[in-house]
Design a protein around this nucleic acid. Sequence first.
DNA 1: GTCTATAGTATGATAGAC
DNA 2: GTCTATCATACTATAGAC
Lengths: 211, 211
Amino acid sequence: MSRTDKITNSTRQRILAEAALLFRRHGYRGTSTRQIAEAVGIKQPSLFHHFPNKQAILEELLAISLDDSLARAQRAASASGPVARRLYDYVLWDLATLHRLPFALSGIYAHDVLQDPALAPWSTKLEALYANLRSLIDQGVRSGEFRPMSPGLGQAMVAGVTLSHIDYAAEHTGGDPDELALAGAAFILGGLLRDPESLDRLVKSHDRPSS
Amino acid sequence: MSRTDKITNSTRQRILAEAALLFRRHGYRGTSTRQIAEAVGIKQPSLFHHFPNKQAILEELLAISLDDSLARAQRAASASGPVARRLYDYVLWDLATLHRLPFALSGIYAHDVLQDPALAPWSTKLEALYANLRSLIDQGVRSGEFRPMSPGLGQAMVAGVTLSHIDYAAEHTGGDPDELALAGAAFILGGLLRDPESLDRLVKSHDRPSS
DNA sequence: GTCTATAGTATGATAGAC
DNA sequence: GTCTATCATACTATAGAC
């Protein structure tokens, strides 16, 4: 995070915003640098004054959306206490953060793009995030808090719900981030918990997520 | 369904299978016709003897995966009886079918591809499928079976879980389709139901899904 | 039904003036 | 920091021989 972009609502930021929107709509590969430039209101070669290449735009968006999530997931997986509580708090924070992003992120976690060897470091980070989720689910299954299930499948489904929120957010602006996050976290925990009454306890005892 | 491909394990079928695999891995746009041809073991122009163009390959895969699901969702949404039962049975059938497909489908529902105007008919079909899911969720919320939630968000999350199964299936072959479908249906219903004890009843009273 | 050769197009990126 | 002009490349698809 050694950058100097305090509140630079500059061309650079507008490129990121428009690119994120287009990447979500048409995918990374389905979006041309000409389209991004047109959306920003400049000509295509001018993009390359702000970013060395198209991939650098994608990588900056990945950094925005992945780094914090991975750190939080790591802490959640290695902390102590009831797993349901830790996973619930993590999901709640993740979704609320996601719904507050200034960028319509997505089309970015799509496996196809991260499969590119040039993006291997990001693929590794996403895999690390997923490994923490698998660990959490495994802990919950072993402790009896969650229904028996393959941690891999559980992780995939949790990630699937998260991705669905990214898409939903992009097409339904104006929703309350916390409300959406609560709905998502309740759905996920409801899907995992063996004794779903404990969900009520989770919801009721939760203070607002700290940024 | 006016085709004549009984058990033609022909070049045509192998093109479909390899294309499906590559589309999932690298996306539709990230997969070149040369890659498909190479995977099949022929040269690139030979593809065009079997399909008029690249898009036709995608469309055939879409037909395989979408037509039946839409029909089933339509019936589920307009039938009578408890919503939870109808949605549970639909999801169970959908996931079990999906896990039995000979093709590693996906990368296909990705919004970015369907956004192409040339694929508008398929985009319409997917939207119709989603509208039926929204209707089911809305019915469930109104009847009190499901927790209060926006039908749009609920539909998105259900679809997200389904997509996660497609991905999971592609990377973990050999799992029991029915078992995976049960886990997915339980997750979804657990996420939706207000009174999750009724989930036990759904699971226990269910006979095996008819093909 | 498959091949070689190639047309036609769109793309990401660079050079250099202003 | 943006522009015009352009290069090099990769792609989908066609033509026509075998």
